[in-house]
Simulated scan of single mutants.
Amino acid sequence: MSIAKSINKAWKDYMWIIIGSIITAASINIFLVPYKIAPGGVSGLATVVYYLSQYRLPVGATMLALNLPLFIAGIRLVGRRFIVRTLLSTVLLSVIVDFTEPFTQIFVDKYLASPEQVYSTPDLLLYAIFGGGMMGVGLGLVFKYGATTGGSDLAARIVNHFRPNLTMGQILLVVDTSVIIFAAVAFKSFIIALYAIVALYVSSKVIDAILEGINFAKAVFIISDKSDKIAQRILDELDRGVTALNGTGMYTGSHKKVLMCVLHRGQLEQLKEIAAMEDEKAFIILADIREVLGEGFKTYTM
């Protein structure tokens, strides 16, 4: 990669990290902290400290203080590039949370239910869902472009560095459960803990969707004695490429072509009809695809 492309990519990454931090801060100030919803992480701990402290310590400043030990640990375990981006997003998120709090509070007071009213209405569930969803979008963007916002996010990234078989969302789900339990005890409310779990679950699912892609495509494997006819119809009628793989039935010892095709979900039923019309005994295997890069699908750009 040329120096110009490298610099352009770095600026693009930092732009998305900033946008992700802003979205995360908005979710914290609008939907979570005002209603004592603490879906794990340092933001959850900072929410508890905010309500239990006599002088209502700023949430952002508390988050930054809680992040320091994990940040120091992260310096030894992950690369310099990752640490620089994490430092940026961690400080940025803390600053944005405290800076925008007065403005978001005006929005909360004007358009959302007050903390006293919300516990007697179904609104708290909506706030947990939307707060968790917004946080998932923000954190997902930060993760996707090579950083974290510190706290359990940084802890999850460190664990993921050594255990890549675990997704970021799964690790966060486990780590943040303890924070939710602590918040439930501190606020003496089991109901708030349940809403926090909803927010955490939604957040983890959105994070995984952003990092790994959404199931928008299907991979199809077809084993048939009439594979040539099926392949030709797929090419003509669905306008999808087909790859023939050489297969051998280990029980019969017969050699057959195994057709592999990736297509959008909306084309799946048509493909099934084509296979059934040409060979009622065709063996079809379907698999979910997280992400597809290439002609006819998503184009990969640096």
Rank of each mutant, 00 (worst) to 15 (best):
Q117D: 13
Y111L: 15
S189Y: 03
L200K: 02
K272P: 00
G79Y: 14
L66V: 04
I191V: 14
P34Y: 05
A38V: 10
T252F: 00
G74V: 09
I18N: 07
K229E: 11
S94Y: 01
S43I: 09
G138L: 03
V258G: 02
V179G: 13
I17L: 12
I129C: 04
E101N: 14
G133R: 02
V95C: 07
G40F: 03
I285C: 08
I18L: 12
G133Y: 03
A287R: 14
G151L: 03
T301K: 12
R56P: 01
L172I: 07
K226H: 14
P58H: 00
V42H: 02
A183Y: 05
A186N: 15
A193W: 00
Q117N: 14
I284A: 13
M260E: 05
S152D: 04
N215F: 10
P115A: 07
V59S: 07
F283S: 01
I96E: 00
L235I: 11
S178D: 06
Q170E: 04
A156L: 03
K281E: 13
I284W: 03
K36D: 05
I223N: 08
L211I: 09
K110E: 11
G60M: 08
I197P: 02
A65T: 01
L166K: 10
E101A: 15
I28V: 15
L194K: 03
I191Y: 04
E101T: 12
A38P: 09
V292P: 01
T149L: 01
L194T: 10
I129T: 01
T104F: 15
I158S: 01
I285Y: 06
S189V: 04
A4K: 08
V48A: 04
W11T: 06
V202T: 13
S21W: 00
I37D: 04
G132S: 04
P39D: 13
Y50T: 07
G241V: 02
D153L: 10
R240L: 00
N215M: 10
V95F: 15
D109E: 15
N246L: 00
I129H: 00
I289W: 04
D239K: 09
R265Y: 09
G140V: 04
G60Y: 07
L87M: 10
A155N: 02
L52A: 10
L166I: 12
F103T: 07
A26G: 12
I30A: 08
D109L: 04
I72C: 11
Y14T: 06
V175N: 03
I83M: 13
K256Q: 06
I158V: 11
K205P: 02
I181C: 13
F216R: 13
R233P: 06
E212Q: 14
F103V: 15
A183K: 09
R85T: 06
V137Y: 00
P58D: 03
L139Y: 03
V137C: 11
I210R: 09
D288F: 04
R85Y: 12
A73N: 04
A183F: 05
L235V: 09
P58L: 11
Y55R: 12
Q105N: 13
P102S: 00
S2G: 08
D228A: 07
P115V: 10
P39I: 13
A282S: 11
S178G: 15
K205R: 08
L154E: 01
P69R: 10
Q54C: 02
P102A: 02
